[in-house]
């Protein structure tokens, strides 16, 4: 008791709190995210003579090709996400089953490509598919490239969720008379929603804005919004590219809000990873 009283009297002027550790991150965040975004927004509203103008946005929405490119990017991102999910979910289930996957080495094998620069990987795939096997550059090769590049980002959150899931839920389901299919549909799948949502976002968002993969693996028909912005920057049109980037940002933001809404509804389950925001 007496020591507690003493410390209360000598109240130190400076107390190191745990929240202080977040200050460097906040500073970096402001410097490299908030300020650039503000600059981006500023540029987006600058007209050709340097005046305030919404002409960049007007240009974007008045040209049907731009809308088409956006829709194509959405389609490409959605397809990549769906294919990644369909491929990764069964694999994640196998990897999470300790009877099949006795050591974590198998998981490492699937995560290992993430250690290699994505540009390098994409060029390797180009060499392999197009140069070696003579595949035509186009929609299919671009899609393969996207799936190949973003697959680990889908696998990892799914694997984490499924391997952290308490096995007694599945056992309880069997115990209550549900067969394997019912148990999967009514227990495993709903409980892995948080992992699915993070996987979907980790694949969907970067695919939406990518340009390197489609440029290396695709042709002029696989022109995505990322390539468009890239070209505008190369052409010195900073204001235009800023406006386009801003549209892309809003689109990605909307998808995030939607998926967060989905997670909130179901993801109260304490089963490991949640959504990413």
């Amino acid at each position: 008791m007496s020591t507690a009283v003493k410390t209360e009297k000598k109240k130190p002027r400076f107390v190191f709190k745990r929240s202080f550790f977040s200050f460097p991150y906040i500073a970096l965040n402001i410097l490299f995210v908030v300020i650039p975004l503000a600059i981006l927004l500023g540029y987006a509203f600058v007209g050709q003579e340097g005046e305030f103008s919404i002409s960049n946005f007007a240009y974007f929405f008045s040209h049907i090709e731009n809308i088409k490119t956006i829709l194509f990017s959405l389609l490409m991102a959605a397809l990549t996400t769906i294919i990644c999910f369909v491929l990764a979910y069964p694999l994640a289930m196998c990897l999470a089953d300790s009877k099949i996957n006795k050591s974590a080495i198998l998981v490492l094998m699937f995560i290992l490509p993430m250690w290699v620069n994505s540009l390098l990987r994409t060029y390797a795939l180009q060499n392999f598919l197009i140069d070696l096997f003579g595949m035509q550059r186009g929609f299919l090769s671009a899609l393969i490239g996207l799936v190949y590049d973003f697959f680990p980002f889908m696998l990892l959150p799914l694997y984490t969720t499924l391997s952290n899931m308490d096995k007694s839920f599945v056992e309880a389901s069997y115990d209550l008379g549900a067969n394997k299919v019912m148990t999967f549909l009514k227990v495993t799948l709903p409980l892995s929603v948080p992992g699915i949502v993070s996987g979907v976002m980790m694949v969907f968002m970067p695919t939406m804005s990518t340009f390197s993969v489609t440029e290396i693996m695709g042709n002029t028909n696989t022109y995505m919004i990322g390539s468009m912005i890239n070209e505008m920057i190369n052409g010195g049109d900073w204001s235009g590219s800023a406006a386009f980037s801003f549209v892309l940002l809003i689109l990605v933001g909307v998808t995030m809000v939607i998926s967060n809404f989905i997670t909130k509804g179901r993801g109260e389950a304490e089963t490991g990873v949640g959504g990413i925001i």
Partner: peptide, 20 residues
């Protein structure tokens, strides 16, 4: 006989109530 076909039910250690 697999557990789902046994006329036996279990109360699990940590209850295993479905959170969803």
């Amino acid at each position: 006989i697999p557990p789902e076909k046994r006329p036996i039910n279990t109360v699990f250690q940590k209850y295993a109530l479905f959170p969803h």
